[in-house]
Design a protein around this nucleic acid. Structure first.
Lengths: 145, 145
DNA sequence: ATGGACCCTGTAGCCGCTACAGGGTCAAGA
DNA sequence: TCTTGACCCTGTAGCGGCTACAGGGTCCAT
């Protein structure tokens, strides 16, 4: 199977597949005579795993660890659990953070009654944090991406 | 006021302030004889506005628009409202997405009963999306950052 | 005169892709 | 046989929003 076919089967762009290979998530496949990458079933499985994990928000390093662990079936799954639990906690924290933003934004927007910019509630609140009801995240808080 | 003092007053790193100037959020201040940036009160206000908006998750382009609008006090605040509402909706969508992740992660983790990697539920689910209860976001969905 | 705290510019790195540019390969049709 | 066009290759640069240097300059107190 060539890279385009693998991409179609896993809903992954060709460039993304090459990127995963470059960063060591997907092992380099055999090559054809014409230097095309040639994938087998195992690659479809591995890439599906990767995509699924990405869809759940795991980052590349975490996925690398998970794949390494999956390749050692005799080990205890403690570490797997630790990674998944840690990620779950990060997701929960981020939701909490976004909830704070949501509340404050809804309050700002809800108080807009039209009119001139000069008396715009949204701009007033942005200009003065003291007008905030909740203590939302400080600027620059990195959000999970 | 020099850049370090401005940073202290607004809880902003010096490099970040220079970055905001470079991308046109913060107007270039006067310079001293020794070529140091020299800020006045208006800059503190503007930077506070920027930091507050960043804290609420607005991106640089949105903040630039909001600042432009704030500089035209006679205009209707329609556009301000549109930007804020649009951002609120983006935040809500993202929360919904993270909720899906959270549910699926919690289910995965909750079913882990220890044991060997070979029979690890977390890895099984990641290897087979069909084992997911919910239809969480596909891989590669860009999350608001 | 010297040390150290601060400031300057410019550049490169982070993440997870995405999007080229500039070429090569391969199979089908004229 | 030649050509077309779909696919593939490598390498590099860009996105956002910073952050972190390197390599220098300025200023003030001792």
């Amino acid at each position: 199977m060539k890279i385009g076919e693998l991409g179609r089967r896993t809903a992954t762009k060709v460039e993304t597949i090459r990127y995963y290979e470059r960063v060591g998530l997907l092992p380099p496949p055999e090559r054809t005579e014409g230097n095309y990458r040639s994938y087998a079933k195992a690659h479809v499985q591995r890439l599906s795993f990767i995509r699924h994990a990405r869809g759940l928000g795991f980052d590349i390093a975490e996925i690398r660890s998970l794949l390494d662990l999956a390749d050692q079936p005799e080990r205890e799954c403690e570490e797997v659990d630790r990674i998944a639990t840690g990620h779950l906690e990060a997701v929960e924290e981020k939701i909490a953070q976004l909830e704070k933003m949501r509340r404050e934004l809804a309050r700002m927007v809800g108080q807009c009654r039209g009119g001139r910019v000069a008396s715009c509630h949204v701009l007033e609140v942005l200009a003065d944090h003291a007008l905030c009801s909740t203590d939302h995240a400080p600027a620059g808080t990195p959000l999970l991406s």
